[in-house]
Design a protein around this nucleic acid. Structure first.
Length: 777
DNA sequence: AGAAGCTCATACTCG
DNA sequence: ATGAGCTTCT
């Protein structure tokens, strides 16, 4: 391998800066020089027959996967197109291809790599027609699934207040993940009445989805399974196509995914699964950890290789993470060790509120990137730092502080781009053009902008579609055709309404037969104009710029598909919209601090990791606590483990003494119980400085006036002559012992203190003049 | 038909 | 705090 080859491999995204080139090339060459340890080598060289690789965090899993594929191609002479590697994210798939290219010296584009969902979508677009699927099927995400369920509940008169549509969606999704169609669900359901309701909805749901030529995420899997099962000749094609099948993140696959993998490797039995039970964090998405046990049963001859040496993290971090995960009881004991140096201690800090927590993060980031830090000598770039949290809402306080301090960040997820209103609207138009029977999309845009198609009209159209068992589009067609019989539902429509829906029908048909424009971007522009959506957006006063920016960003993304012919471009673009996930947007080369949820952080690594919200109620999340299900608590612990093991050199575990729940009041927030599993000698706790609390309104001021003065307000709760009590003060009560002040508010001439006491005394309200309470330290 | 205003439940992790 | 979904007003 020389520089020239390396540059070729870097291909289209080749950096322009010389130093960047040197850095990238050095990286590529280093990959080649990487040595495999004996177990890694065994995993790479075991190519025939079933193989289970149990890979701890940072144990070189991706390296093993790519080297194994390279070994198959280079040493065993297997053509790349005979190999499939299924990963958890599209990003991971891309990474495998890139790294493989670096090893091989040429791009192995013939290799099939992607997520299960994209892999299945491909199979269904190609061969689903055998089972009656429309080639142009729409893919519904969970919110569209819920929309559909609500429609059905209205139709069969089930009260959505009594039975939550979301809960029904979850049940249906769960059934599908286990390959249970409505009949299968009927045989497996409990005797609870709720299950009876779910069954009724499920049956009708399937009909409506089919009328809309739509598949949900679970359908992509279940229909693929059914297709391969019902049509052995199709299974044959794929079975012989993929002689080597690899699954990454196996601990987070569901039953349907595993069954498909088995179908595809039925002949060769060359199935290699890679996973770590300790990093299983998606059971709520129906991932089934039992797949690992099933694998051993289904393939008794399977070779198991354990990768236990961690190359990623310091001894301190590995030790701490091990102690946290060891407290799980539903767990197979597993080794994890590292030869890395001890490194710096974990830094634990409790902020007074989440704002102070965020301030600590911000200040520490500034220190780290400028060379002055709590642990001496450590320096890094903003791009080396990630801040991780349990729920997206936690990013708010962080963002405000980061903006305030002028630190650039990239946020992964949040309100996902493709889930924004205007983006969904435009996408609905695009989908409707490809597949006019898509009821959910039609419903979404038929009156956006307003076209005189109101609730009344849609109720009649819907009724007609239900009566005839057709899509809304078909119903509109028949209601607007000349030869409808007088006593039909059409007679209930005013001539104005008939005209309105006729116009919409022609609009869609016109766009469907559009042949003037040649590329996707021009086409979307055309759709925007012809549907009146452009004008509609301009008519907004609220968030107008943001909406327009979003649409511009949409067009920019569409530009990636500009080289394809229009039909292919639309299909690929829509597929992309449905199947990309949030982590796919993560830019590894970015020089910005990364804000990310713990779930999304799986598979990533950073020199410096801040985990914020190490509080009971957040991690573990209150829902898992409330569920009373011990296995949910264990999953929260695994989530904590995943977060900790992302860190290479420095790990911060931060919490807040009290947190704002939502919008309103603050609640006392105990430390996460997981913290107590970390040996004290691995952690240091910096003393909080005399803190000035930056409140939100001052940040807002700052944001609105970027050149305005640096207003930092300190929040004082006390103005009169009593003893000074502030939020966060430690106090001693003669009966309840030590506690901490949560809030202080005036009560007449007195002060009412809300104090959280230790040792089970809980939260008490006290009057400062009466209660035997004294400030300590 | 459609906008404005109201109440009410809802508030995690996501391909 | 926010939005879905309902009611009322124009």
């Amino acid at each position: 391998m020389n520089y020239c080859t390396a540059l070729e491999i870097l291909g289209s995204d080749a950096p322009t800066l010389h130093s960047d080139i040197i850095r990238k090339v050095t990286k590529v060459i280093n990959n080649l020089l990487e040595e495999l340890n004996p177990n890694q080598r065994k995993a790479v060289e075991t190519v025939e027959g079933p193989l289970l690789i149990v890979a701890g965090p940072g144990s070189g899993k991706t390296r093993v996967i790519t080297h194994r594929i390279a070994h198959l191609i280079n040493t065993c002479g297997i053509p790349p197109h005979k190999i499939a590697a299924v990963t958890f994210t599209n990003k991971a798939a891309r990474e495998i291809k890139e790294r493989l290219g670096a090893i091989l010296g040429y791009s192995a584009s013939a290799l099939t790599s992607g997520t299960f969902h994209s892999f299945c979508a491909m199979i269904l677009r190609r061969d689903g027609i055998s089972m009656g699927l429309d080639r142009n099927f729409a893919i519904y995400d969970d919110s569209e699934q819920v929309d559909m369920i609500k429609r059905i509940m209205a139709e069969i008169e089930v009260d959505p207040k009594k039975y939550s549509p979301k809960a029904i969606q979850a049940k249906i999704s769960n059934a599908k993940s286990q390959l249970l169609d409505p009949e299968g669900f009927r045989l497996n359901k409990t005797s609870e009445y709720f299950d009876e309701i779910v069954l009724r909805v499920y049956e009708r749901y399937e009909q409506s989805m089919s009328r809309s030529s739509a598949l949900d995420f679970d359908d992509l899997l279940m229909k693929t399974y059914q297709l391969l099962k019902q049509f052995p000749q199709i299974q044959d094609i794929y079975m012989n196509r993929y002689l080597y099948f690899m699954i990454d993140e196996f601990q987070d696959t569901n039953i349907a995914q595993y069954e498909i993998a088995k179908q595809l490797s039925d002949v060769s039995r060359n199935i290699c699964v890679v996973g770590d039970p300790d990093q299983s964090i998606y059971s709520w998405r129906n991932a089934d950890i039992r797949n690992i046990l099933s694998f051993k049963q289904d393939y008794p001859e399977a070779v198991t290789v354990a990768l236990e040496e961690n190359y990623r993290s310091s001894k301190t971090i590995v030790e701490a993470a091990k102690n946290v995960i060891s407290a799980n009881s539903e767990r197979v004991e597993k080794e994890l060790w590292t030869n890395n140096k001890t490194g710096s201690p974990i830094i634990a800090f409790e902020g007074h509120t989440e704002i102070e927590e965020a301030q600590f993060v911000t200040k520490e980031i500034a220190n780290l990137t400028h060379g002055f830090t709590l642990s001496e000598g450590f320096r890094c770039k903003p791009g080396d730092i990630a801040v991780m949290y349990r729920v997206n809402a936690q990013s708010e306080a962080l963002e405000k502080e980061l903006i305030y301090s002028g630190i650039g960040y990239q946020i992964i997820g949040g309100v996902e781009f493709y889930r924004r209103q205007e983006i969904k609207d435009l996408t609905a138009y695009m989908r409707l053009i490809v597949n006019p029977h898509d009821d959910i999309s039609l419903n979404r845009v038929i009156n956006k902008p307003t076209r005189g198609v109101g609730k009344q009209t849609m109720a009649i159209v819907t009724k007609s579609a239900q009566d005839e068992g057709t899509s809304l589009y078909t119903a509109i067609q028949s209601l607007t055709s000349d030869n409808n019989i007088p006593e039909s539902l059409a007679s209930k429509l005013s001539s104005r309404a008939i005209k309105a829906i006729t116009n919409f029908e022609s609009l869609i048909n016109e766009l469907r037969s559009e042949t003037q424009v040649q590329n996707l971007v021009e086409f979307i522009e055309l759709v925007k104009e012809k549907t009146g959506y452009s004008k509609y957006i301009r008519s907004f006063t609220e968030r107008r710029e943001e909406r327009e920016e979003n649409i511009q960003a949409y067009l920019n993304r569409a530009a990636d598909f500009i080289d394809l012919n229009l039909t292919d471009a639309i299909t690929s673009f829509l597929e992309h919209i449905s199947l990309v996930n949030q982590v796919d947007g993560y830019d590894q080369e970015s020089e910005l601090v990364t804000l990310i949820t713990l779930h999304q952080a799986k598979g990533l690594e950073f020199p410096v990791v801040f985990m914020v919200g190490m509080n009971e109620g957040l991690l573990p999340h209150i829902r898992s606590i409330d569920s009373g299900d011990p296995s949910e608590m264990e999953e929260e612990r695994r989530l904590c483990y995943v977060g900790m093991t992302r860190a290479e050199e420095k790990l911060y575990l931060l919490r807040a003494f009290k947190r704002r729940t939502y919008g309103g009041s603050y609640t006392f927030s105990p430390p996460s119980p997981f913290l107590s599993n970390i040996p004290a000698d691995l952690m240091i706790t910096p003393k909080p400085e005399s803190s000035k609390t930056l409140n939100y309104s001052s940040v807002k001021k700052k944001l609105n006036h970027p050149n305005g003065s640096n207003i930092r307000e300190s929040k004082k709760h006390l103005t009169d002559s009593h003893d000074i009590f502030n939020d966060g003060d430690k106090v001693m009560h003669t009966v309840f012992g030590e506690g901490r002040v949560i809030s202080v508010k005036p009560s007449g001439i007195d002060l009412e203190l809300t104090v959280a006491f230790e040792e089970g005394h809980g939260i008490k309200r006290l009057l400062s003049s009466i209660a035997p309470v004294k400030k300590i330290r």
